[in-house]
Computed example of a mutant assay.
Amino acid sequence: MRRIPVIATVLVLVAVAVMIALGFWQLDRLHQKEALLAHYAGAQRLAQEVDWPRDARGQEDLLYRHARLDCVAVTDHSSIAGRNAKGESGAAQTADCTLADGTRARVVLGWSRLPMAAGGWPGGEVHGVIAPGPRLVASPPLAGLDANAVPDPADIPNNHFAYAVQWFIFAAMALVIYALAVIKRNRA
């Protein structure tokens, strides 16, 4: 029987070890994502409204909470793809606001089939839900628009278990393919 090639075997084993480590990393990410989604779901159930957070960390911590802000000046209007409360596709109408302390916030005013349907909204008090971005999705909608779909943490994908399984399958396939190659080489 011929010898097993040392360098090729070491390379394959290192690659397999990396794939297995990536699989376990994805399992760890799965648990982190589950905890994050549970945090968001809990935040969504809290009825008490909070002030719009002024810094990025506060915005991340308060995602899916009910919040309020006072838009003292609108610096820009735009529209992005979005869905209304009925699930229909259209345009979410947004406004970039400056708050009294000079910080900025993006507000999703409401939904329309037409882009730029709320270009004349002058600002004011806004109540809604903090969505990723971050942005405040107005509830009730403003500027005569229809209601947007309420931001829901259940819409955030959690595919880490599938990714972990993929990495473990890749590792197993690499071992099988390498074993078959060594067997074929030794028979030749």
Rank of each mutant, 00 (worst) to 15 (best):
G82R: 00
S112N: 09
A91G: 03
I177T: 11
D96G: 10
P115G: 03
P141R: 13
G128E: 02
A179T: 09
L145I: 10
I169Q: 04
P157E: 08
P134W: 05
F170W: 03
S139K: 13
F161E: 12
A117L: 01
A131H: 02
V150T: 15
R83K: 15
D101L: 10
A162I: 13
A91N: 11
G102M: 09
A149H: 08
E125K: 15
A81Y: 08
G102R: 14
V165Q: 05
P115F: 02
P153I: 07
V165T: 12
V176S: 05
Y178W: 12
F170P: 04
G128M: 02
G124R: 01
D152P: 03
R113K: 15
A179Q: 09
H77G: 11
R187T: 12
G110W: 02
G123M: 09
A92C: 10
G144W: 09
P140K: 05
A179S: 08
R104P: 00
T94L: 12
P157D: 07
A95L: 05
Q166D: 06
N186W: 13
N148Q: 15
A143C: 12
L175F: 00
A162D: 11
H77M: 08
F170Y: 03
Q93Y: 04
C97W: 00
A138I: 09
A95Q: 03
S78P: 08
F161W: 13
I156S: 10
A164I: 09
S139N: 14
L99W: 05
A100F: 08
I183D: 08
V176I: 14
V108T: 14
L109E: 03
H127W: 06
S89N: 14
G82P: 00
S112D: 07
Q166K: 09
S78V: 00
A105L: 08
G128R: 04
A147W: 05
W167M: 06
H160W: 07
G144I: 05
H160Y: 03
M116P: 00
D76W: 02
R104A: 13
R185L: 13
I177F: 05
C97S: 09
V165S: 01
G144L: 13
L109D: 04
